[in-house]
Amino acid sequence: MTADTDELLTVPEVMARLKLGRSMVYDLIRSRRLVSIKVGRARRIPLSSFRNFITDQISEAA
């Protein structure tokens, strides 16, 4: 694993990067379009999952 894949993003960080609201980010997580893990009560999104989501969105738009 590289350092990039080890990094975990918080929901607010993903919200800021995607310029989306909290509900939309949780909808993406619920629909499994954005992979996340739970650490205790906290939800974390691996950076690699975030990047894959962006790549998938670009591919779908093309």
Rank of each mutant, 00 (worst) to 15 (best):
R17G: 05
E13P: 05
F53H: 12
M15G: 01
L18E: 10
P12Y: 08
A3H: 13
K38M: 10
V14G: 10
M15T: 00
A16S: 15
V11R: 03
Y26T: 00
F50R: 05
L28F: 11
S59C: 07
S48L: 07
A61T: 01
E13A: 08
T2G: 11
L28G: 00
I54F: 06
V11Y: 07
D56T: 05
L8G: 07
K38L: 03
V14F: 12
R41Y: 08
T55E: 12
I29A: 08
A62D: 07
M1K: 12
F53M: 12
D6K: 15
A61V: 02
I58P: 01
A16C: 08
R33F: 04
G40E: 02
L20V: 09
A42D: 10
I58H: 04
L47G: 03
R51Y: 13
S48T: 11
R33E: 11
A61C: 08
T10E: 08
K38P: 04
E60M: 14
I45H: 09
A3K: 03
V25I: 13
L34I: 00
R44P: 00
D4E: 14
A62E: 09
L9C: 12
A61F: 01
S48F: 00
A16D: 13
S59V: 11
Q57T: 02
L34P: 00
R32M: 04
P46D: 02
D6R: 15
R44G: 00
R43K: 13
L34N: 01
S59R: 11
F50I: 11
T2Y: 06
D27W: 15
E7T: 07
P12W: 12
L28N: 03
D27K: 15
L9T: 08
I29D: 11
M1S: 09
R43T: 13
S36C: 07
F50W: 15
P12H: 09
G21W: 08
S49H: 05
F53K: 13
L20N: 05
E60N: 10
D4Y: 06
G21M: 11
L47S: 06
T55I: 05
N52F: 02
L18G: 03
K19V: 14
E13D: 11
E60W: 06
D56V: 02
A42W: 02
V35Y: 00
E7S: 10
D6S: 15
L34F: 01
L47N: 03
G40V: 04
V11M: 13
L20Q: 07
K38W: 03
T5Q: 03
M24L: 06
A42G: 12
A42P: 01
R43A: 04
I58K: 04
V25S: 02
T10G: 14
A61R: 12
L8N: 05
S23N: 09
E60Y: 08
G21I: 10
D4G: 03
T10N: 09
E60F: 09
N52G: 00
I54P: 03
M24I: 10
